[in-house]
Write a protein that binds this DNA or RNA. Structure first.
Lengths: 153, 153
DNA sequence: TTTTTGGTTCTTCTTTTACAGAACAAACAA
DNA sequence: TTGTTTGTTCTGTAAAAGAAGAACCAAAAA
């Protein structure tokens, strides 16, 4: 398959987006390539060629993506190549995990509040306020997912 | 002020938490120090001493935190020191921005869907499903914040 | 005026990241 | 058997990150 300019551009944009989330550049671009690839799956060689990187870099990136359960591969009879693709099936739980994770700061806030003597200060009130919201948020997220499921299926 | 073991531990934990979000180590620890500090505000020197880092590192970290509007300082009459503290007042909009930002991937998903020929494939269906959820999510987040405000105030 | 305080900027150093390239290995093919 | 395909692992390295230390500067104090 040959990539159009538009596709190459999308790969870069998706790559940068994932870089901002702390993933290494190549990892984000592999995700981009898998998303735009017409077969929705790519071989090891295709990654090497389309992204112009070394085999070792690709091997490490794929190992990482599989460890994080973002990618799997399957094989085809009479073909030794692996066909790597995104585990898009899990987007729901992945996204939920991500949301709950950013709310993890609540645990630290509560611990900090425990250690503070000025419980009724404006500072503590604001922290408590935020902590309460995060608690609320963590309870509401699963409900939000449920509502979506019912509404759209 | 002298920090207890518990407080030092909290600073480290809060530091690591922020490192995972892509902030540089010292920045996360400064946030931790400001959270546990009994005055809820720290001077430049206190940061240098409590965290055992150089003045230049502290200067750069504080510049960064102020640019990101996470920190401000005020001064006291007859005292040349700056008292730096967290801008905790904005937690609500900050957190909302963070949530909407992680939903930004939807934009790319829609663009990818545009370029794909296999619109009715399982792959595209799942992407569209995710994209729909993200749209739903982005609309619901502000509502969630509103509900919290009413419920707890 | 000179000195001190509080902080910034510039240069340098160390460590880590992200990748390249070559050697290697396992499975299959000839 | 020998060679080929499909990756993996090991070693090296350029570049960037993160911070140290010294020089520097502006405002206030002496």
């Amino acid at each position: 398959m040959v990539l159009s300019e538009k596709q190459k551009e999308l790969i870069e944009m998706i790559g940068v987006f994932h870089e901002h989330k702390g993933l290494q550049p190549l990892v984000g671009r592999i995700i981009g390539l898998m998303l735009v690839h017409e077969d929705a799956e790519v071989t090891f060689d295709e990654i090497v060629e389309h992204l112009g990187v070394s085999k070792s870099a690709v091997s490490n990136a794929l190992t990482f993506l599989q460890a994080k359960e973002r990618v799997t591969y399957h094989t085809k009879p009479g073909d030794r190549k692996r066909y790597f693709s995104l585990k898009l099936g899990d987007w729901r739980s992945d996204f939920e995990k991500e949301l709950l994770n950013i709310a993890e700061i609540q645990r630290f806030l509560e611990e900090v509040l425990d250690t503070r003597k000025d419980k009724s200060s404006e500072f503590c009130t604001k922290m408590k306020d935020f902590s309460n919201f995060l608690e609320f948020f963590r309870k509401e997220i699963p409900i939000l997912f449920e509502r979506f499921k019912k509404q759209y299926h």
